[in-house]
């Protein structure tokens, strides 16, 4: 039996309050990247992971090879990130990991340990996320809705990290969203919804 893995970041998470951990969910600056910690061999048994999901601490025991997307869906009942392509090509599974949008299908659940994962399903949405949701409904930017949570996450990431959201023009929005696929053809509505929110910062 391998001895139970001990991840110091998880320990850290346990000791600090949710608020502090959330505050840590700001996008990291390049020079702040943490140095690698002690690497331990995990598996083959299911391994425990703990992270902040939409501001709440969650735990799961997952097969080592389980992706974060599967963990969110199967272990944690989070229905926002889907896996349309399951290989990093469509954006349907986007989550914000420590404040940066990443595909959860190409990342191991184990790698989310001790980190902050935010999804479009956030139960207490920050004002920007709430504004995006409203705008997506108003512009009819969800048809079948399967791509929608990914679209919203990408848009959230874009506007949250843009130095000046109101300065974003249509071309910039289209460029930023190019990694998100939609088969129902909601693209025009999505662009309108994002520009609408970007231009009304006072509402968020």
């Amino acid at each position: 039996m391998a001895r139970p893995p001990r991840l110091s970041r998880r320990g850290l998470l346990r000791t600090v309050g949710t608020t502090t951990a959330l505050a840590a969910c700001k996008p990291p600056k390049a020079h702040e990247a943490a140095p690698p910690e002690d690497v331990e061999v995990l598996g083959p048994e299911p391994i425990p992971v703990t992270f902040l999901l939409d501001g709440r601490r969650v735990r799961a025991k997952v097969p080592v090879q389980r992706t974060l997307q599967v963990c969110l869906q199967e272990d944690l009942g989070c229905t926002a990130p889907k896996a349309p392509c399951d290989r990093g090509a469509c954006g349907g599974c986007l989550v914000r990991l420590d404040g940066v949008a990443v595909p959860s299908c190409t990342m191991l659940a184990a790698d989310a340990d001790g980190r902050c994962v935010d999804t479009a399903a956030h139960p207490d949405p920050p004002p920007l996320l709430a504004a995006l949701r409203r705008a997506f409904v108003a512009h009819d930017a969800a048809q079948c809705g399967y791509c929608t949570a990914g679209m919203i996450t990408a848009a959230w990431d874009l506007l949250d990290r843009a130095p000046e959201p109101a300065a974003l023009d249509e071309a910039a929005v289209r460029r930023a969203m190019a990694g998100n696929l939609c088969r129902c053809g909601t693209h025009r509505a999505v662009v309108r919804a994002i520009l609408d929110v970007a231009g009304r910062k006072e509402t968020w």
Partner: peptide, 19 residues
């Protein structure tokens, strides 16, 4: 008219078969 299923879809709460 806004879709009645819009809020469920934009908040990622809508349940699809695999959910």
């Amino acid at each position: 008219i806004d879709r009645i299923d819009g809020p469920a879809k934009v908040s990622g709460r809508a349940r699809y078969t695999t959910h």
